[in-house]
Simulated scan of single mutants.
Amino acid sequence: MLAIEGLTKRFGTVTALDGVSFDVRPGELFGFVGGNGAGKTTTMRIVLGVLASDGGTVSWQGAPIDADVRRRIGYMPEERGLYPKMRVAEQLGYLARLHGMSAGDARTAVERWTERVGISARAGDAVEKLSLGNQQRVQLCAALVHDPDVLVLDEPFSGLDPTAVETMSGVLAEKAASGTPVIFSSHQLELVERLCDRVGIISAGRMVAVGTVDELRAGETARIDVVGPPAGWPDGVAGVTVLEAGHRPGGDWVRVALDDGTDDQAVLRAAAAAGPVREFTPYRPPLTELYRDAVADRVVVEPQPETAGARS
């Protein structure tokens, strides 16, 4: 298990990380989400040893991460870190050798991963000749070529077309199924919700929520659509709290939270007494809405480039 405990990091007067804690379990896809400057990249760079934290720990299998462990991590940075003049296969083989693989094993791994991500036909081309999407595929190969024990990926889906997104999604799911912990950041929340076992939401350097999407859906909610109800009709219904309301031609709708033990049939009867009911359904808010609610009261502050050196 990869465990991050109480990470803190300051850039001058800016607190980039403030007690960040979460873990990524074997065989788990963990989605790390937050706005620009929230602290995602800073956290990942500390895990990789690119940055030093001001406090807190990063451990793997219960022991502090050292240089030997970091050689077993596959890392994909948000900014492309490829040598543009080198040919794809040559570059991937070079990186595999840096991780300690033999020439033969490196060659086999390069063939395997370029084939898997759909760029084997471009293996002899210079990286600069590739589209941005194909360069992203090469970067994924670079993270995978040495068969890492952990995958840490910063915005891996950026710039990919739908076909490439499906390819990369399949690769990450396969790695997780093999027991590898996989953490990736992304602004594509629908994709995170679809792929990930658990999600961590970071805002202004603090973890504001961690759990499965179902766990982040606090309590039971329902959407009720009633034709022509009197104003404020749900206010007197026991065990019901109105979360939001709206109007559309022919009727009003409300989304309500039900207290534990509230009889949903009693709520339905109260709605029917207010007017004809067109809809009464459980409501499962998407991750985009959960994210919005989690960060609503927080302000994200960008570290200044001259002190931070990079975007979080």
Rank of each mutant, 00 (worst) to 15 (best):
L2K: 03
T8L: 02
K9I: 05
R10A: 13
L17N: 12
S21V: 01
L29H: 11
N36A: 03
G37R: 09
T43M: 00
M44C: 08
L48I: 02
A52N: 09
S53L: 11
S53Q: 12
S53Y: 12
D54G: 11
A63M: 07
P64A: 12
I65L: 09
R71E: 08
R71A: 12
M76H: 10
R80S: 13
V88Y: 14
A89M: 06
A89D: 11
E90F: 07
G93D: 04
G104A: 03
R116V: 05
S131W: 00
L132N: 12
A143M: 10
L144W: 13
D147C: 10
D154A: 12
E166L: 15
L172K: 02
A173V: 01
A177I: 00
I183T: 01
E190T: 09
V192C: 11
E193P: 04
E193N: 07
L195I: 03
L195M: 11
R198D: 04
I202L: 04
V210K: 10
G211A: 02
V213M: 06
V213N: 10
E215T: 00
G219A: 14
G219N: 15
G219D: 14
E220G: 14
D225W: 07
V226N: 00
P229D: 03
P229R: 01
G232S: 14
G232N: 02
P234K: 06
P234L: 12
G239Q: 14
G239S: 12
V240P: 09
L258R: 13
D260A: 15
Q265Y: 02
Q265A: 11
A266H: 08
R269A: 14
A270D: 07
A271C: 02
A274G: 00
V277H: 05
R278Y: 06
R278N: 09
F280N: 01
T281N: 13
R284C: 15
P285K: 07
P286S: 09
T288Q: 08
R292A: 13
D293A: 09
A296P: 13
R298N: 13
E306P: 14
T307H: 13
T307S: 14
G309C: 15
G309H: 12
